[in-house]
Design a binder for these strands. Structure first.
Lengths: 227, 227
DNA sequence: GGTTCGTGTGACAAAATCGTCACAAATGGG
DNA sequence: CCCATTTGTGACGATTTTGTCACACGAACC
């Protein structure tokens, strides 16, 4: 799958140079020559990186950057800013606005490609441990939402934590004591039936898939491997 | 807890300048004037960031960078390289060697501080994204526990989600609408004050650190950068 | 088969959480 | 300074969550 780079510059020779080198490096290229067009194309295409010149007609690069970084659909797109040589104030303003990197004109196309590669590495490097998917289940640790066959499960917080932990360690029998400690923060009650009750409730909410949640008699509970 | 920066340059006036500005920005500073000393101090002290000049006596900056990035104990330390103006080949070589960023001499100290902040922001997230630490705060998305100065915060689930999202995107103003959508799952109530109420409650629980949670009037809320 | 222990289930009540309202205070613009 | 809008704060009540108890049922062993 080729990644897409949006190149924004009002100088067509810069665009030509970048298009040639980026395509040679395996990227798809979208172009824009002014700020409004850049915003429009960024919103529509959601490129993997945006190369953005500071000096643009009508809406300047700083303003474009600010807008893109403030909109949810575009804020995660890395922005590499092109700046005129020596304008330190521009560079600082760009960084403060949320640009992810900058390159000073005149630049080497090779440097651009390397920096884009670095940006892409960083933006995809978060192998997101906050999202777990297995079989018909998915667990999102940011939103605390679990789904079963694409349908949101109506879980309490404790049920979510329990399910998340069991799924994280699917295939392994987890003793009640461990569940108490890691889900409940080590409740001190001896011979508590708290875990059992919450497992029950969780099973009720899993419906036909509740058989994934197995009892290991005398040991604990286990989420079935391979689901 | 102050973070430590190792500054490596054979020019004492550069070291003086950086030491002054970094300490003023709240960092502790370690210094080295040549490559062997830099390697030694990096291995011994394990600083949070290394500022590394390319041109060094004996072992040059590229070689230092290569060694540090190839050793387990030091490979995760972000390296910001200082390069002479115009030497594109140096910059490319630095990036290929594994430097995390570079700044062209002569530089603005403010730009250095900003870039260090950006590097630190990236390096305090674990690879799987379920544990985030910044300043005195830590967020654990597995246990749904947040701590402040090592002490567990007594947060409700909603408060935890709110804090986690704001810290994930610290430095950025998050509109209320965004918070409603991402924390509450897009509550449909118009002109709801729900977000404001939960921010209040969260602030109450943060005590003296509540000033980290800033109101951007007419926009939304922001968790302060650099904490 | 009988017995003991482990787990499931129905139900209860206390505590926690949440969203909303009304009013106070702060902010920004004219 | 005044005014309008935005945000902070005190407080309330409805709903949800939680842990526990008692009893039923199942599993394993003798």
């Amino acid at each position: 799958m080729r990644q897409t780079i949006l190149v924004v510059d009002d100088e067509s020779d810069v665009i030509d140079l970048l298009r040639f080198n980026l395509q040679k490096s395996g990227f798809d290229v979208i172009e824009a020559t002014h700020g409004v067009e850049a915003l429009e194309k960024a919103r529509k295409h959601r490129p993997d990186v945006i190369i953005l010149d500071l000096m643009l007609p009508e809406i300047d690069g700083i303003e474009v950057c600010r807008k893109l970084k403030s909109e949810d659909h575009t804020s995660a797109i890395p922005i590499l800013m092109l700046t005129a040589k020596g304008t330190v104030a521009d560079r600082i303003e760009g960084l403060e606005t949320g640009a992810d990197d900058y390159v000073v004109k005149p630049f080497s196309p090779r440097e651009i490609v390397l920096r884009i590669r670095a940006l892409l590495l960083r933006s995809t490097q978060t192998p997101d441990g906050t999202l777990v998917e297995t079989g018909p289940f998915s667990i999102n640790k940011n939103t605390l939402v679990a789904t079963l066959c694409g349908k949101k499960l109506d879980l309490t917080t404790t049920e979510f934590k329990l399910l998340a932990l069991l799924i994280d360690r699917r295939g392994k029998s987890i003793p009640r004591e461990t569940l108490l400690r890691e889900v409940w923060g080590y409740h001190s009650t001896v011979d508590s039936r708290t875990v059992d009750t919450h497992v029950r409730r969780l099973r009720e909410k899993l419906g036909t898939e509740s058989s994934c949640l197995e009892t290991i008699r005398g040991e604990g509970y286990r989420f079935a491997m391979g689901t």
